[in-house]
């Protein structure tokens, strides 16, 4: 019951403050633009060449459109998840709304989980719509793709973004400053990630999900279940840690 009440408030907030709209517009734009850029960028570059310069670029294929799509949704999805989550708890603590609401019969775990679920839903809706837009434009400009594999690719993209969301939300519970929360989240995501890559454990990290998705679209079905399991753990563990930190935190 209290979960629904808090989720309803969070959803109203995301809609009223245009966060939902911005997220959908940004990801749908890049869903549409990715196949378009993949198709026409070589032609634009070739036609722009002047002074007898002869540039030979092979014609774009559906694989180029997919890799362009993955790259764009990954980058802008991370940015949106990070921006939305870094102030989610920190800002409420700073402004005093968390104290005002949490003296009422609202469990702190519910307060946190409602934030995660509503933000996850915003990202999910945005990725779904971007996926539909991307599929349609890729079909128009190139060829039809395997729908199930396209769904799987977008599902993996979403799991990857949820990792960013959960880690940033955890950081948001640590501090009252959203800038500090964002900085800590970046540190947590970048530094250990780079160390793991140097230690050749990159294939176990969430980034591997995107490689897996791209492989699927090329017809290679070899899975990366370890990376998937690690990613799910990297969603659950930060949320649990956030709850453990927040449940006894003085507001």
């Amino acid at each position: 019951m209290s979960m629904w009440v808090e989720f309803r408030k969070e959803w109203m907030y995301l809609v009223r403050t245009y966060r939902f709209l911005v997220s959908v517009i940004v990801l749908v734009f890049f869903g549409l633009a990715s196949p378009f850029l993949a198709k026409f960028l070589p032609e634009i570059i070739t036609s722009a060449a002047t002074g007898g310069l002869n540039i030979q670029i092979p014609p774009a294929t559906v694989v180029d459109a997919i890799s362009q799509y993955v790259k764009n949704i990954e980058q802008f999805g991370i940015l949106l998840a990070w921006i939305f989550a870094m102030g989610a708890v920190a800002q409420e603590k700073d402004r005093g709304t968390a104290a005002m609401m949490l003296v009422k019969p609202m469990p702190r775990g519910t307060f946190l989980l409602a934030k995660f679920i509503s933000l996850a839903l915003v990202l999910a809706c945005s990725v779904i719509l971007a996926g539909i837009a991307g599929y349609y434009y890729t079909y128009l400009l190139f060829e039809a793709m395997d729908i199930l594999r396209w769904l799987a690719l977008n599902g993996l993209l979403l799991v990857y973004l949820l990792v960013v969301l959960a880690i940033t939300l955890f950081c948001s519970t640590l501090t009252k400053s959203q800038v500090a929360a964002g900085g800590i989240a970046l540190g947590i995501m970048i530094i250990p990630g780079q160390v793991m890559v140097l230690l050749k454990w990159g294939k176990s990290l969430p980034g591997e999900l995107l490689t897996w998705g791209a492989r699927l679209m090329r017809g290679n079905t070899s899975p990366s279940w370890i990376a998937f399991g690690v990613s799910i753990a990297l969603v659950i563990v930060p949320l649990l840690a956030a709850w453990l930190v927040f449940r006894r935190q003085e507001l």
Binding site: K9, M12, Y13, R16, T17, R95, G96, A99, M100
Partner: peptide
């Protein structure tokens, strides 16, 4: 210092 959701 009461705090509210100003968008409500």
């Amino acid at each position: 210092e009461p705090a509210f959701y100003n968008w409500m």
